[in-house]
Amino acid sequence: MIRNAARWFKMLGCLQETKQPISFEEYLNQYISYMRQEQGLSECTILSRFYQLRIFLTSIEQKQQEFTKLTPLIVDEIIIGKHDIDHHSRRTVQLYASILRSFLRYAEDQGWCPKHLASTIKAPRVYRDESLPSAPYWSDVKRLLANSVSDSLVDIRDYAILMLLSVYGMRCSEVTHLRLEDIDWENELIHLQRAKRCKPQTFPLSKTVGEAILRYLTLVRPKLRTSREIFLSMYVPYKLLSSAAVYQIVSKRLKKLNITIKHYGPHALRHACATHLINEGISLKEISDHLGHRTLDTTRIYAKVDLTTLRKVAEFDMGGLL
């Protein structure tokens, strides 16, 4: 109730919010402008780096007051804490170290910190394809979808989202940015602007997915002319559904299945889609195109979880060959 009331008062301009100070905010704002104007990074990438760097700068302020006296030892402590305290994977820590290295190179050029600090950052070694994608079984995905079918307005919206994530293996951002004009009802096509590809892709619109989206548009979605995105929040002020909201939708419903997987977010359904396709005998090239991968190398890791084929190999009678 408090959250919804706050949104309402904020929309009316009656709520005065106290902005929380950000450590070394002037440095962060200048670097954001550099990423946007000089590097040409997407807003999604900039936002992700903003959150990471905000935490990093807060940690620095807690350890010392002056950015100019930053040392490799302090940076190492923060990076190691990502793994030992926050329990992030080595791949996540490696990405975090890369973000810090880029920021500190810029900071060195601006004279904010000592020279050659960025070059001292050491990231953990990550071996190619060292881990398997974490995904629920396809039977669990079917249970997830079945449990989401009801006449509840929230369930109608969430079911359409879950269908897109499961059937098309869409990324979270691809779902949230899907627009009304991306659905060609007359020709039964869906046009996707993939998050990591420059050109859009067109797929046949599955009948069940189309029916789920149409039911949401007819019964649930607010009739707003100003918003072209398909999925909006349920309460006023109506706005684009955030990636965090989609994560909560999937996570909450996956956890209700009482299954054990590494991650309970939307990407787990993308992994489940890929694993299901490869177990059905679909080629890696076709799966790569379906998921919007830029190279086959990204898709090839799913060959490691082709459980159906692995079971056939295990059951093969080797007696005549020995």
Rank of each mutant, 00 (worst) to 15 (best):
N4A: 12
W8P: 00
W8A: 08
F9Y: 15
K10W: 09
L12Y: 10
L12R: 15
C14T: 05
Q16Y: 10
Q16S: 13
Q20C: 05
N29C: 13
Q30G: 09
Y31W: 14
S33G: 12
E38V: 07
G40R: 06
L41R: 08
S42Q: 09
E43M: 14
Q52E: 14
L53C: 11
L57G: 04
I60W: 01
Q62D: 13
Q62C: 15
E66R: 14
K69P: 01
K69T: 08
L70K: 01
L70F: 01
P72Q: 09
I78H: 00
K82W: 00
H87A: 08
R91V: 00
V93K: 03
A97K: 03
I99H: 01
I99M: 11
L100D: 00
D109A: 13
D109C: 11
Q110K: 15
C113P: 01
K115F: 02
A118Y: 00
K122Q: 12
A123M: 06
V126A: 15
V126S: 15
R128C: 06
R128N: 12
E130R: 09
P133G: 06
A135S: 06
P136E: 05
W138A: 08
D140H: 09
L145N: 12
N147D: 12
V149M: 10
D151T: 03
R157A: 05
R157C: 05
M163P: 00
M163H: 02
C172E: 04
S173P: 03
H177Q: 14
L180K: 10
L180V: 11
E181T: 14
I183E: 03
I183M: 11
D184I: 08
D184K: 11
W185R: 14
E188H: 07
I190E: 00
H191F: 09
Q201N: 13
F203I: 07
L205M: 09
S206K: 10
T208D: 15
L214Y: 07
Y216W: 04
L219I: 05
P222F: 05
K223H: 05
R228V: 07
S233H: 07
Y238Q: 10
A244I: 08
A245F: 00
T260P: 03
T260Q: 13
I261L: 05
K262V: 00
Y264S: 04
C273W: 03
N279K: 06
N279I: 05
I282Y: 08
E286H: 11
H290T: 08
G292E: 01
H293N: 06
D297A: 15
T298G: 08
T299Y: 07
T299D: 05
R300V: 03
K312R: 12
K312C: 07
E315I: 06
D317S: 15
